[in-house]
Design a protein around this nucleic acid. Structure first.
Lengths: 350, 350
DNA sequence: AGGAGGTGCTCATACGTATGAGCGCTGATG
DNA sequence: CATCAGCGCTCATACGTATGAGCACCTCCT
């Protein structure tokens, strides 16, 4: 047995010939909705018989060309999808996207071709490459990651391409549809909890990045501090990055009883530097982290859960809603991030 | 500023109108090879200008229909790609596939739509679903995973669709192109090593599965035992699955000095049951595992490395070779699996 | 008998791209 | 001046599918 030589898959026309009907009859039977197709059972059977005999399968490209959906859902990540390190970032989003795509009968296109040419480059990916946008290969796309070039997003939006961005990204003049973890709310909730436990003087340690997800955290924190009438004079609260030694000395002296930190990395550093000053967490200072702690550290830091899988699923659903109703240009959707208790926050004076 | 309303992406015809040329001129400039297109520089520029102005991008469906490449590389997994168990099977293969696809300018399409309808099902995916084979949306595909239905593979091969299977899978009558970890060679090498260390009486513990990858291991092991004139009367060697208590008693009594095990899972069970009989690894019995140990156990078990990333890359390259030369119907390619030393194999009598 | 309405299809065309064939023009050559 | 080659395009068509329009035939009703 030898493979049929690569030429010509059978078409509807072939099927039609074999069944002794016209091509359009075949089309009607195979894919036409039963309503418009008034074809009696015996003809149907003859056609299906011919289909089986020839091993006919519909050509999706041709089908797509008739203005039907391609049933392809694009996924554009601004960095490599399967990274060596930091695999946790994309992975869970993709998990949800894949699940939901499968459930709704879509295939996923991972756009990788838009890397910046040479292989050794920074791995940063662009949507538009030499004036061509591969994204509309798919019915719509989910965008994911750290998009440095907002112009691209603006253009995509302007062109009316249906897409959903995961994570908040503000682009002036464009109201891009996005699914956003509610860092702001979660940060506020963490402050609420600290206040409940009797903490009045707080501190804040911020990362170096100036992107929206961090802005949200900072806003939520500042808002809650204000609302509850707490005090914070930490450098991070005023905009300084990282941990300052002077301030640590003050904290060790009791200037703050609870500290909110933007990342596990910084929290660990904080822990070590406090330890060096003879202060323990949570006995002397409570610490909460505004990030999802990795699985092996979960249950340790008081932190938050980013429901990434759920966000991926939601993004798919919103995209599909946009496809079904093109006029529906929805804005942001906030997804709550529950707090997860750990062992680094305690009531004041315990 | 409002988004362009979602009607009709611009076509070559639109570009042509704007540039004042014919559609075919546009086609020639954009995608025709320079040889056949005798279009002077200024017209080219005018056309490209119009392309930019309209944001034209080629319709892949139409292009595919004309028999051109879509630059889409299919990935069909017979189970879900992003499983919950993270260290899983697929991840590293995909890593390599993605890297290589990016380097060679292909996008990846993950075929998820072929799941068996309802969401709660077994998650087993089919290639052919209600008479349509979505795979030929892509230029070619990489198949990956535990394909239960060999008929599908046979049919795909018969139809001349270009694909590469990762992992060995025998289909009678079809010579399917595949990239295969050399379990057979690795198993032999492990026996070689044991023999070098003075072991003469071996044992073998097999998994329950009867699929090719395990057959390869068993063949390699049996072959080496025979070749080196060693002895093995273990139940696993004769075909029994799992670990038998009677035999364990014999081993504890010195019937075998080294045992080759098909999985870490079984090896751990073996270790515990030997311990219960007062025997230690490797002091009393050496144990080697014919599987890649998870990262956190690496350096512990004597085991082997499955170069998954590399295999993914190779699969992409082979597929591309097939695309470039459709007559090239290559068979299996073996990829060596190096042994990785651990602490569970020792010289006899140490 | 004549019309209405239904059945079982076929015809023709559109979708967007690629490409072989060919047409009108210009400049060079014999 | 006639011929010819090359240039710069256009024309026409094919790819496979979906679908509105319509045709021929039949049945039923008045």
């Amino acid at each position: 047995m030898t493979a049929r030589r690569r030429g010509k898959a059978p078409s509807q026309a072939d099927v039609a010939r074999l069944a002794g009907v016209s091509q359009s009859a075949v089309s009607r039977v195979i894919s036409g909705n039963a309503a418009t197709a008034r074809i009696p059972e015996d003809t149907r059977q003859r056609i299906f018989q011919a289909v089986r005999e020839l091993g006919y399968v519909a050509n999706p490209a041709a089908r797509a060309m008739r203005g039907k959906r391609t049933n392809l859902l694009g996924v554009h990540t601004f960095e490599r999808v399967f990274p060596h390190a930091r695999e946790d970032f994309y992975f869970e989003f993709l998990l949800g996207i894949e699940e939901r795509a499968e459930e709704t009968g879509f295939d996923l296109v991972l756009f990788t071709s838009t890397g910046s040419g040479g292989s050794g480059e920074r791995g940063e990916r662009k949507i538009y490459k030499d004036g061509t946008n591969r994204l509309n290969m798919a019915d719509g796309s989910i965008l994911l990651g750290v998009s440095t070039d907002r112009g691209e997003l603006a253009r995509l939006w302007y062109e009316g391409y249906p897409f959903v961005h995961i994570g908040r990204r503000e682009v002036p003049g464009a109201e891009i549809p996005q699914v956003v973890p509610d860092y702001r709310g979660a940060s506020g909730a963490i402050v609420d909890r600290l206040a409940e436990l009797g903490h009045r003087r707080l501190g804040y340690v911020r990362e170096w990045l100036e992107m929206e997800p961090y802005e949200d955290r900072r806003a939520g924190y500042a808002e809650a501090v204000e609302r509850l009438g707490l005090t914070d004079e930490s450098p991070g609260f005023r905009g300084a990055h990282g941990i300052e030694a002077d301030w640590l000395d003050e904290v060790a002296g009791g200037a703050a009883t609870a500290i909110v930190v933007e990342s596990v990395r910084l929290a660990e550093s904080l822990r070590d530097q406090l330890a060096a000053r003879g202060r323990k967490i949570p006995d002397d200072v409570s610490v909460a982290v505004l990030e999802a702690a990795p699985a092996d550290l979960s249950g340790q830091w008081d932190s938050l859960v980013i429901p990434r899988t759920e966000i991926g699923r939601i993004a798919v659903d919103r995209l599909q809603a946009m496809l079904d109703d093109p006029d529906q240009r929805t804005g942001s959707l906030l997804v709550p991030c529950p707090l997860i208790p750990g062992t680094t926050v305690a009531a004041v004076g315990d």
